[in-house]
Design a protein around this nucleic acid. Structure first.
Length: 750
RNA sequence: UGGGGUAUCGCCAAGCGGUAAGGCCUCGGUUUUUGGUACCGAUAUUCGGGGGUUCGAAUCCCUCUACCCCAUCCA
């Protein structure tokens, strides 16, 4: 759990404090038309996580309003995924389809209120009538139908008397709304289709915008959390619930940015395509970003939850680096799984001076993992090592076996290369070596220094296994289509060799194959006769990074972005006249004058205040900077304060009765209560303190309390001046004259 | 182009007028019979650009720019 709260939890806490809800209720509402992916995992963690954090609860709801795409197999997949992640829902799974009768009743209600009508335009006409983003739409003539006609038609739609597409039910909102979603959105459409749950009972199905808000309401959801692309839909959400005048409390929708990960596609459509075209083995192919895929790959629920926690929740569209996910699974498995040895690309080594056989007892866990357990590793004259772990002509920093450099066989002896055997083509086929009898692991008296220990297996006893090496499914960071698929995303090694204990003792289902990565016994294809391991993730490898570094100059040297300055709209004649007056006659700087002159509300407010107090610059500053904020979404007559009061406020600042700091506080208060500034100042005793003899002791106190920062300041960190001033100001409730404080602090610290 | 959003390190992300958190990545170093882990250290004088207000601005005001979403009888 990160220590800082995300914006959703901030909202929830505020609502709880305000007593808006007794209990927090969230929901995870997928449509059962595909397998859930890691983006859903994020949503699951958010919704179930918030419910857990605030002692509420979270429903699992199938948003199944479209009979043509949904299926029971997907609801099972969704349930599996949520359960596997470790979350629980109570009262069973919910289904929007269970609410169809109630949703239908609400639609009838809306018709009766004259807020919904049956439209009979065809699809094309409807699109034309909707207008465009810049041009308003126009309403269909069918909107004129009477309530009775609408009721009758809607009932007959329900009974199945019409063909698909003949009629729809629409909300009567506003065909010229700037938000396109509000141009009389569809509420119901006719679909003569079999619903996987509701069967053939319904001939009409509610649209998302109508069903979702009502389902939330029916379940008593308090916070309806969804992704950013639904921001425009929020207006309908609110419209439906408000228009129906439902009993409060009602849910509110909040949006967060969906998860995107580089080298990954997250669209259900594209994932479906991969499955249908057989480009992957199924929804649970270990390369798929589906929860089922990660699960089959060997990821743990903990690692995914931890990942969701680490990436945070915000509203900025972002692309998370897949390295972050990989870190999470390594981090989790590091402390959990046994270490064993496996050779993927075997190179035979014959130890010429060794006869017979023996067994080494080797712990499953390294010294820094506090877990018990060990196994026996057989050893004899013929072994296999990884082909990579021998080099005839090594680069400078190569730590492994070479003709000149001995190496330790992990948990066993040190060996030295004596001869390299090659085939006709010059490929190395075998190494002849000798071992050092006094170098046995744990009782080494040989005094030989080796730079590394490598994995190996005994030729006679090693087990052949299949290992599936998975790499990222796509080869480019922001993949779009099939052309971006990584052709090498799966490499199958049929005859990897693993030490026998892995198969015979089965100490776990996940392993670290030392120096290679984490692997998982495939839950589907693994058998005792033909074991199969999936590579979950490789170990961090600073060696290959070093050697392959030049190849990865992926990042283009990003040309410095040139900021294009757009043109500012010219002022009208009237605005220009004002601007000239403000800069000339009143002596305002051009920026403030510009702000004022261009805004009718501000300029009239300004002149109004000016008629009370002749202090053009000070008034202009406060109007352009503070009042402007309040006037952004309100009209002048909606404000609780007026121009005259602003003039009073400015007067106090001009006369130095209060500091500008206090003036801001007072202004806040005026915004909320409309009280006179003089009253506020009097009531709270906000008169400015400028007398050094009153301020000095406070400064001394602050300095005494922060010796570290004093030292830092004296060492040259002058930014800390602001810290000290802030502390002193805080101690005086903001009343100290900041200019004086600044000077005094500076003197004191010199 | 109307409307709705978003911009803080290579990637995420805190911050809500008073010292620019944290994680991932990267780079050094220590420990290590895994080139793993762990541990130490480095890495934003600056918050999309430009102005303004203020003793003090990532935070308030103005303005410009870039990106995302909306014109499915999908969700």
């Amino acid at each position: 759990m990160s220590e800082s709260k995300d914006f959703l939890r901030t909202i929830v806490e505020k609502d709880l404090e305000a007593g808006k809800y007794k209990e927090i209720v969230t929901r995870f509402p997928p449509e059962p038309n595909g397998f859930p992916h890691i983006g859903h995992a994020k949503s699951i963690c958010i919704n179930f996580g918030i419910a857990r954090d605030y002692q509420g609860h979270c429903n699992l709801r199938m948003d199944d309003t479209n009979p043509t795409t949904e299926d029971t197999k997907y609801v099972e997949a969704i349930k599996d995924a949520v359960e596997w992640l470790g979350f629980e829902w109570d009262d069973g799974v919910r289904f929007t389809s269970d609410y169809f009768p109630r949703i239908y009743d609400y639609a009838v209600e809306l018709i009766k209120m004259g807020k919904a009508y049956v439209d009979s335009l065809n699809e094309e006409e409807m699109r034309e009538y909707r207008g465009t983003v810049t041009e308003p739409g126009k309403r269909s003539k069918y909107a004129l139908r009477t309530v009775e006609e609408n009721l009758d038609l809607f009932l007959r739609m329900k009974k199945g008397e019409f063909k698909d597409g003949e009629h729809v039910l629409r909300a009567k909102i506003d065909m010229s709304a700037a938000n396109m979603k509000m141009r009389d959105p569809l509420l119901y459409r006719i679909r003569h289709a079999h619903h996987y749950r509701a069967g053939d009972e319904w001939h009409i199905y509610p649209m998302y915008d109508f069903a979702h808000c009502l389902s939330d309401y029916i379940e008593g959801i308090t916070h309806s959390i969804c992704t950013l692309e639904f921001e425009n839909n929020r207006d309908i959400y609110d419209w439906v619930l408000d228009t129906l005048r439902l009993k409060l409390p009602r849910p509110y929708q909040h949006e967060f940015a969906r998860l995107a990960i580089n080298y990954t596609v997250m669209s259900k459509r594209k994932l479906l395509e991969l499955v249908e075209k057989g480009l992957v083995s199924g929804w649970d192919d270990p390369r798929m970003p589906t929860i089922a895929g990660y699960r089959r790959r060997g990821y743990t629920p903990e690692s995914i939850i931890n990942f969701c926690d680490q990436i945070g929740i915000a509203k900025a569209n972002s692309m998370v680096d897949v390295a972050q996910l990989e870190f999470c699974i390594r981090d989790d498995l590091n402390t959990k799984v046994p270490r064993v040895m496996c050779v993927l690309d075997p190179l035979k080594v014959t130890i010429e001076n060794y006869e017979g056989s023996e067994e080494f007892d080797a712990p499953y866990y390294p010294h820094d993992v506090p877990k018990e357990g060990s196994r026996k590793i057989p050893f004899s004259k013929e072994i296999y090592i990884e082909r990579d772990d021998f080099m005839e002509n090594p680069p400078k920093d190569y730590f492994r076996l070479t003709p000149e450099q001995p190496v330790r066989l992990r948990h066993a002896y040190i060996i030295t290369c004596k001869e390299v055997i090659k085939d006709a083509d010059g490929n190395i086929t075998e190494i002849k070596a000798i071992y050092h009898p006094d170098s046995k692991s744990g009782s080494d008296t040989s005094g030989i220094n080796v730079k590394s220990a490598i994995q190996w297996v005994d030729a006679k006893t090693a087990k052949a296994v299949e290992v599936r090496l998975y790499d990222r499914l796509y080869s480019c960071e922001a993949p779009e289509g099939l052309e971006d698929l990584n052709p090498d995303s799966l490499k199958v090694i049929k005859n990897a060799l693993v030490e026998p204990a892995v198969i015979t003792d089965k100490p776990d289902e996940r392993f670290q194959f030392e120096r290679q990565g984490y692997f998982y016994a495939d839950p589907v294809d693994y058998t005792d006769e033909a074991p199969v391991f999936n590579k979950i993730v490789g170990l961090k490898d600073s060696w290959s990074k070093k050697t392959k570094a030049p190849a990865k100059s992926e990042r283009k040297p990003q040309a410095k972005k040139v900021q294009v300055e757009g043109e500012v709209a010219p002022m009208s004649e009237h605005e220009q006249a004002l601007f000239d007056k403000y800069t000339g006659e009143f002596g305002l700087n051009s920026e403030v004058a510009n702000t004022l002159a261009r805004d009718e509300k501000l300029s009239s407010f300004y002149e109004d205040a000016l008629s009370t107090l002749n202090s053009p610059v000070s008034i202009a500053n406060i109007v352009a900077n503070e009042v402007a904020r309040e006037l952004k979404e309100k009209q002048a007559d909606e404000l609780l304060f007026n121009a005259k009061q602003i003039a009073q406020l400015v007067k106090m600042v001009d006369e130095e009765t209060i500091s500008s700091n206090i003036a801001k506080q007072v202004f806040e208060q005026m915004v909320k209560s409309g009280e006179d500034p003089t009253q506020i100042v009097e009531a709270k005793g906000l008169v400015q303190i400028s007398d050094p003899s009153q301020i000095l002791p406070i400064i001394d106190e602050v300095i005494a309390k922060n010796p570290d920062n004093v030292a830092k300041f004296k060492a040259g960190n002058t930014k800390l001046l602001g810290f000290f001033v802030g502390q002193v100001l805080k101690a005086t409730g903001g009343k100290a004259n900041p200019k004086v404080v600044n000077e005094l602090v500076e003197q004191k610290l010199k």
